[in-house]
Amino acid sequence: MRSFEDIEQAIDAAQKSEEPISSAKVLLEAGEDVMEQWVSAHDGEPTQKEKEGFRLLALHRQGAKGEPSFNACRETCRELVYYYNLITLDKSHEDVAKRVVMMALVAKHLLYFVSGKMIENELGGFCCASKPLRANMN
């Protein structure tokens, strides 16, 4: 399992790449890897199943079970899927470079949000509840 630092580097590299299809794949995988971190930190086995054709969405659903505040990144996951579809369905579109940048920023937000939720010890159960999970992660 990749660390958050490695995932962030992969996102940065994908954002700079000039090959949109491979960038989109890397960014979608980055989202999946972020979700794997969350699920594993909750003592779960990351699912290999797909929801609506995407493992990322199945992983998000798995991660939100028993943790309603995790739904705060549901739309971010869906935006990642949206940009993946936009890029891969029309790689020659005039806006494709912009779409890759947007997808990278969305992926990065997901990474920051999830890693932020895992970094704080006993911050409590309000809003975006952070849990003392980072210590048990690696």
Binding site: E75, E79, C127
Partner: peptide
Amino acid sequence: PLKTACCGGAH
């Protein structure tokens, strides 16, 4: 795309 994303207010 980030219209409902977390602003980090709680952190």
